[in-house]
Design a protein around this nucleic acid. Structure first.
Lengths: 218, 218
DNA sequence: CAAAAAGCAGACCACTTGGTTAGTTTTTGA
DNA sequence: TCAAAAACTAACCAAGTGGTCTGCTTTTTG
């Protein structure tokens, strides 16, 4: 347990977590190129060399963080089949994505930045898995269309639409805050989630599941 | 016509345009911090000092570019009133935004990056104008709701939804290309535009205007 | 056609960058 | 108790950063 392996002691785990948290904040604001190790170190309240002690390079730090983020990217929609009801499956997926934007905006931002600047740091294997997931979900949605559970719509654009409208609440939180006058709280997110679900399901000609229906006094 | 003013000769205009084009590309990929003057110079095929001859600092270059981008941000929706038909007004707005994503993806990306990293380079006056625009549009949409032209919906979230789903096609073009297997062409954009319009208008309970209806063989 | 203005670009500067080395201090487990 | 392992960090380095200065060339203009 020495030399080149990742340290697993208590202190190491702790420090690595602190550094990753700081890195998440930094990378979310300025992307990979725009973030310096020094900046991460400051946010973590550690000397720069300490950061490099735990992560051998900036790239290694970024990759580790990206790995962690992608682990949290799973959702119940992964396991939806043609036998499920599209309105509930889609509504749940949207709600999950909105919750992700609320609880983990920095992870969303990093993911968004990464794609925006060309997904240079996604390896081929991830891209392939992502495409396989996408293709699989398309098949399910098209199955719903075929057996009349949902109106005719381009399944790919529908997925893009869902990603866009939910991720927006993380990526553009600054703008939203400026325009609304204050940061969105949990209740606001619940309300926004209902609106997004209502818009998209309505657009697909689906009924909104009861649990996502608007309460009367809103 | 000397000393400190902006040069207005033919060569100057030409060079400034070339540099701005290069800067747009560079900033769109890596944001303000992540972009070096050297990189812009390379893209413009000019020595670094020549870039600094026309723009006195990196910040000045970025500000000029941002100013230009914001000038193109206007749309017919700015002038929509409560007397207009919401379905046509919204459909046109969505179509315009999609066209912007198609023709000017880099501008969209820079705008998105700027907001994502906290809108640090937007001055207070722009933020105020933007908020005034937003508030004005909210009033129009709520007017439509009040006189029954459109179902009850949170007007702010509706606008966010439109921005998100249209801007997505610029910001996430890399992902879209990877998943679809090829870059979206003009026809694909037309199809995506129809889908987005159909989703959002459908979600609002509005009829899609004839000119944005899907053709049969799609 | 010459003087003035504009355009151009190499040399240079202080500072920041990612990263290494080498040595010290702290923790841990037999 | 004490040596080995882990944690830490100051000093340092080469390369890249934004930006200036200076002097040359080209273009414009009276």
């Amino acid at each position: 347990m020495s030399e080149k392996e990742i340290k697993t002691g208590e202190i190491a785990k702790n420090r690595r977590a602190i550094i990753l948290k700081a890195a998440e904040k930094a990378f979310a604001q300025n992307g990979f190129k725009g973030t310096s190790i020094q900046k991460v170190a400051e946010l973590a309240n550690l000397p720069k060399t300490n950061v490099l002690y735990y992560f051998k390079s900036k790239m290694m730090l970024y990759s580790t963080l990206m790995q962690e983020i992608l682990h949290t990217w799973n959702s119940s929609f992964d396991r939806v089949t043609i036998d499920d009801e599209p309105n509930l499956a889609l509504a749940n997926y949207i709600a999950e994505k909105m919750e992700m934007s609320r609880l983990n905006p920095n992870a969303s931002k990093i993911f968004g930045l990464e794609i925006l600047n060309g997904a240079q740091n996604f390896d081929a294997s991830f891209k392939a898995r992502h495409k396989a997931w996408f293709d699989g979900r398309i098949i399910v949605i098209e199955g719903w269309i075929d057996n009349g559970k949902i109106g005719n719509i381009d399944a790919g654009y529908l997925l893009f639409h869902i990603w866009a409208s939910t991720q927006h609440y993380a990526d553009f939180s600054t703008q939203i805050k400026n325009l609304r006058g204050s940061k969105m709280n949990k209740k606001d997110f619940a309300s926004a989630t209902k609106t997004v679900i209502s818009l998209i399901l309505g657009g697909c000609g689906l009924e909104v599941p009861e649990k996502y229906l608007d309460t009367i006094n809103e």
